[in-house]
Every structure is written in C-alpha cells, then in structure tokens.
Simulated assay, not measured.
Amino acid sequence: MTEGLDTARLAAWRAYVESSQLLLTQLEEELRDASGLSFADYHVLVLLSEVPGQRLRMGELANRLVFSPSRLTYQISSMQRRGLVTRQACPEDRRGSEAVLTAAGLLALREAAPHHLASVRAHLMDDLDDDEVACLTRVFERLGRRLRAARDASTANASR
C-alpha cells in the first residue's frame, strides 16, 4: 500500500490543487471575456508567435501543449475556422503538417495579451515577493523537467 502524506505535505497538496484550479478558472474567464480566446487558444498563439516563421509541426506543438494528437487536431481546426491559424504541409516533409500563425491570429494575441497579463499580475504575481517568485520558478522548472523526461521515456518505450 502507498504511504500517505504527512500533514504539512497534504496541506500543501490540497492548497496547490484547489488554488491552481481557482486561478486557472479565473484567468480563463477573464481571457474569454476580454478577447473571446480560450486559454488553449492563447497558449497556441503564444507558442506560434515565439518560433521562427511562426509555424510548428503539429507533433511538436502537441508535445509543447501536452495535448494528444486528436485534441490538437480539434484545437487547430477550431482556431482555423476563426482565421487564427492555418494548417500547411511541411516544406521539408510533405507527409507532416504545420500549424501556422495568421495575421489575424497575431493581432488577436496582441490585443489579448495586455488584458491577460494584467489578470496574471492581479491574481498571482503581484501577491508574490521576489523570493517566492524564485522559489516557484525553481520548483516548477524542476517538476517540468522531471515530468517531461518521464513522458519522453514513456513515449519512447511505447514506440518500441
């Protein structure tokens, strides 16, 4: 049987789960109200805006978003209908496809960003001191590295 958590760790876990859900719900609601974009829309637009050519292979984008291929296809199709992205064949490999940021998508991101960042500040960042920001960064970067490595190992083993 798996060992339970001590009182302090259980309290930390519960506080994390409950407050992170409240935070993400609040940020999503404010983002939708201000821009009509979902959190997933916004994340796709940010990722595409940050890469050369504003395009990513669908597999790479799914990996960065931690989306299944079918979930990403649904997400990109929805965004494509709204003119935020397009899907194009990969120039170097015609079998694959890429999600490409459109001018309308970039404009939507630029219009949404100030409101979204104000929400992030108001509901999280402005309440933290520099030491707390550094601590959160260390904890979540380490956790992200470990979880990505485990996910990559699991994917590699499944494809064997």
Rank of each mutant, 00 (worst) to 15 (best):
V46S: 06
L10P: 00
E132Y: 02
L5C: 05
E50P: 01
A103Q: 15
L10M: 08
R110G: 12
E18W: 08
L37N: 05
A108S: 12
G4W: 03
S154Y: 10
G96W: 09
R94A: 11
Y16K: 01
A99P: 04
R95H: 14
R57P: 05
P91V: 06
G144S: 14
R57N: 13
A11F: 00
G36L: 10
D126A: 14
R146G: 02
R81G: 08
N157M: 10
A108F: 04
P91K: 10
E132D: 12
C90P: 00
S38A: 09
D6Q: 10
Q54K: 12
G83L: 13
S35L: 07
E60W: 01
M58K: 08
S154E: 11
R151M: 05
A113R: 06
E18Y: 09
R9L: 14
S119H: 05
Y42R: 01
S154M: 09
R14V: 14
Q26G: 07
A149Q: 13
A8L: 13
V17N: 05
V100W: 08
T137Y: 09
T86M: 11
A34F: 07
Q21G: 12
R9Q: 15
Q54M: 03
S77D: 15
A103T: 13
L22K: 13
M79N: 01
T86S: 14
L23Y: 07
A153K: 11
Q21C: 04
P114S: 13
M79E: 00
L31Y: 05
I76E: 02
E98G: 00
R148G: 00
D126E: 15
E29Y: 00
L56C: 02
P91W: 02
R95D: 09
R94I: 02
E132W: 02
L128R: 08
L84C: 01
V85K: 02
V100N: 07
Q88I: 15
A104N: 15
S70Y: 09
G53E: 07
R55Y: 00
G144R: 09
T2R: 06
Q21I: 11
L5H: 09
P52E: 15
E30R: 15
N157R: 12
H115P: 01
R64E: 12
D41I: 05
S159A: 14
D152E: 11
R14P: 01
R55N: 06
R64S: 12
S159C: 01
R9N: 14
D152K: 05
G53H: 09
H115E: 07
A134W: 11
A104M: 10
A40R: 08
T2V: 11
V139G: 01
T2Q: 04
S77V: 01
L106Q: 14
D93Y: 08
A104F: 03
A108H: 04
E30Y: 04
S35T: 08
L24D: 09
R32D: 03
A62P: 03
L65D: 03
W13Q: 07
T73R: 12
T86E: 13
C90K: 06
A113W: 01
S119K: 03
T86H: 07
M79G: 00
A8H: 08
T155D: 10
Q54L: 00
D33Y: 00
